[in-house]
């Protein structure tokens, strides 16, 4: 089983819903929300939070740097 668990926090108001983080994620953690933020973008969210390993790929490709990544060893 996975020895690390991760979690990401998306700044919903900063996210422009480009979807680059969704394809960059190797474990299918992120998805685009059906809801929109105040600017009308479908912001990203963790649809499968238990799969996250905290690899930071989503945060690295995010053009608006609205993702913060946390990781913990278990």
């Amino acid at each position: 089983m996975a020895k690390v668990r991760g979690a990401v926090v998306v700044d919903n108001e900063e996210c422009k819903g480009c979807g680059l983080c969704v394809v960059a994620c190797p474990h299918d953690v992120l998805g685009q929300n059906k809801q929109v933020n105040s600017r009308g973008y479908h912001f990203s969210f963790m649809k499968n939070p238990e799969n996250c390993i905290g690899c930071s790929n989503c945060a690295i490709v995010c053009p608006d740097t609205c993702i913060t990544v946390y990781r913990v060893k278990i």
Binding site: G6, V69, V72
Partner: peptide
């Protein structure tokens, strides 16, 4: 429990 300052690995520069 994961989202704590001590577990931070990437944030906005």
């Amino acid at each position: 429990d994961i989202i704590k300052p001590e577990n931070l690995v990437y944030e906005k520069p």
